[in-house]
């Protein structure tokens, strides 16, 4: 097996651009997905049954269908319906955020419900209201427990952002496939893409590990 470095060198600028967009998509998905996830998770825990049911439906749909299908639906269906034309980057960010929101909602709910109910009782018995108790007592403790599963979800998100390539979003895999079809090569583009993804995911897990350790010493 020969390995053609020259075509890789030619594609360096494209891989760089693609990697930047992959990072951008992931960060957008992580941030929007986390905010969505917190809201949806709290929504699902509401005592109001019809509202909780709606949030539950959301989670069921987005966890239960492939991201592939969601991206196609959003790119060719939802986005054109909303703004008249479509845009791969916008559609990809929407799809990634929505699916991340569904998973992160469950992470938040599990984290909050894992805190001993005596904590809420102690806080309420001191006269603090529900919102104050959540903010000062429950969420800080729950957040610490959420870091490992959140880290997993963020890593999944980085990898799944590669599906954005199917709607011509010019991220890392888009250029990988472009290189593959231009030169009819397999190893060079895909191994390079794999390596770059690996660097991204291991850097993220390194950062999360450090964060977890810093919070643990408290």
């Amino acid at each position: 097996m020969d390995f053609r470095l020259d075509i890789l060198v030619e594609y360096i600028p494209f891989f760089l651009k693609g990697t930047l967009l992959t990072i951008g998509l992931s960060i957008a998905g992580i941030i929007i997905g986390t905010v969505l996830g917190l809201l949806i998770g709290l929504g699902k825990m509401m005592r109001n049954k019809p509202i909780a049911f709606l949030f539950n439906c959301y989670i069921t749909f987005f966890r239960g269908t492939p991201l592939f299908v969601q991206i196609l639906l959003i790119h060719f269906g939802v986005v054109p319906m909303l703004i008249g034309h479509t845009n791969g980057i916008v559609a990809s960010i929407i799809a990634l955020s929505l699916i991340a929101g569904a998973y992160i909602a469950e992470i938040f709910r599990a984290g909050i419900q894992s805190i001993d109910k005596g904590q809420m009782e102690a806080s309420r018995s001191l006269g603090m209201n529900h919102v104050q108790s959540m903010k000062d007592v429950i969420l800080p403790q729950a957040f610490k427990r959420m870091i490992p599963p959140l880290g997993n979800e963020f890593i999944v998100l980085i990898k799944e952002s590669s599906l954005a390539a199917i709607v011509a979003t010019p991220e890392l895999m888009y250029y990988g496939r472009a290189l593959a079809s231009q030169y009819y090569r397999v190893w060079e583009p895909y191994l390079t893409a794999a390596l770059i993804y690996l660097v991204l995911t291991t850097s993220l897990s390194f950062l999360l590990n450090r964060l977890e350790r810093r919070l643990a010493t408290e």
Partner: peptide, 19 residues
């Protein structure tokens, strides 16, 4: 909440805030 400010409670399991 107002009533509870006048009534302190101590629990069997302490329920201190560990963080």
């Amino acid at each position: 909440n107002k009533v509870r400010t006048e009534v302190g409670m101590v629990f069997q399991q302490f329920n201190l805030f560990p963080h």
